[in-house]
């Protein structure tokens, strides 16, 4: 297991290098630099000194080299817009993002898994079709629109829940979490349904029925545990994606999350900040992926023995279930 984790961390390094280089170069192609944004705060001399310090008088590769050198020392750099460490800024926003991502995925799980199971057990029926259309409806609603509609109904008209911010704790979490969760529903419901359909006609469920296991237990215990691998894969992917920042929803609800921090930084050409945020979200996503891989072992004993023998588990995980892209 330890060896596996180390391998995963090593695999992360080229991705971080690639992503940061990509972002660095692309943002460099954009007109303007961070200096234009902060020019008013400095005298021309200071600005010239800063330009030299930040490497804006040299090529983008020089600046990238500087950045990587700092990164190698565990330093994500300093944002000149906020005049603060990128790490600190990111960590300030992370709890809100984690909370929202967790709550959204939870909403999605609570809605999708029962719906997917229902659709699979009533395969081909009206219920099946209705569930799938309901799930697709969730996918088809633009997040910002759903968010605004929820605000109109529950905040402005009924006055039940706050429309923005982070201050009301759990109550302010509800609407944004439903907004994102509804969007995630389609994929998770579909995955649950197709995964359950694969399992539902399997011989071992017939064995269970022949033993006299009640149908409910057949579905909830015997079938669901077998159908879990693709479901967990999708949950992991969705968790990762929401952690990267749900830019639009954060915008609608003025949620103080990482997504808005990143977008604002892009708008302000704060290359260091953008790169830092994206690197952090890459790291978060692979942490989640690692967690997912470890969960596989608890769900499927065949994978556990693969871990023990140190074989290629991604390949196996895919063989056992396969995720959706």
């Amino acid at each position: 297991m330890g060896k596996y984790i180390v391998k995963r961390v090593i695999m992360l390094i080229p991705v971080i290098i690639g992503v940061s280089l990509l972002i660095f170069i692309m943002l460099d192609l954009a007109p303007g630099t961070v200096l234009d944004q902060i020019a008013n705060d400095y005298t021309p001399e200071q600005l010239a000194a800063l330009e030299h310090e930040l490497g804006y008088d040299r090529s983008v590769f020089y600046r990238y080299g500087m950045y990587m050198w700092d990164l190698l020392h565990g330093d994500l750099g300093t944002s000149y817009i906020y005049k603060a460490e990128v790490w600190d800024l990111y960590m300030q926003r992370l709890p809100a993002t984690l909370l929202l991502a967790g709550a959204s995925v939870l909403v999605s799980i609570v809605l999708s898994i029962p719906l997917g199971i229902l659709a699979a057990t009533k395969h081909g029926s009206l219920t099946d079709n209705a569930s799938m259309v309901a799930a697709l409806l969730g996918l088809s609603m633009p997040n910002f629109w759903l968010g605004l509609m929820l605000i109109i109904v529950f905040s402005l008209n009924l006055g039940w829940l706050p429309s923005s911010g982070f201050k009301d704790g759990f109550r302010s979490l509800i609407l944004p979490a439903i907004t994102i969760g509804t969007g995630l529903m389609a994929t998770l419901t579909r995955t649950t349904r197709s995964s359950m359909l694969d399992v539902i006609r399997s011989d071992y469920l017939r064995t269970a029925r022949a033993k006299g296991v009640p149908e409910k237990t057949v579905i909830r215990k015997h079938a669901l545990k077998n159908a879990m691998i693709p479901i967990i894969t999708v949950i992991g992917t969705q968790m990762g994606r929401t952690l990267g920042g749900s830019v639009v929803t954060e915008n609608v609800f003025s949620w103080p999350g990482v997504g808005r921090l990143t977008i604002d930084a892009v708008k302000q050409r704060d290359t260091i900040m953008v790169t830092g945020c994206i690197i952090m979200s890459v790291i978060m996503i692979s942490l989640i992926q690692l967690l997912v891989d470890i969960t596989y072992a608890f769900v499927d004993p065949r994978l556990k023995s693969q871990y023990a023998s140190g074989g290629g588990k991604r390949k196996l995980a895919r063989a056992a279930g396969g995720g959706q892209t």
């Binding site: 399997s202 011989d203 071992y204 469920l205 017939r206 064995t207 269970a208 029925r209 022949a210 033993k211 006299g212 296991v213 009640p214 149908e215 015997h222 545990k225 077998n226 769900v299 499927d300 004993p301 065949r302």
Partner: peptide, 29 residues
Amino acid sequence: SQQELEQIRGRDVSMIFQDPMTSLNPVFT
């Protein structure tokens, strides 16, 4: 009824299935 069936299956009548490779649930001991 489904309930009566569940009581009888496995107790009074049970079945050995053809393919042992797929007839056992892989995630339970």
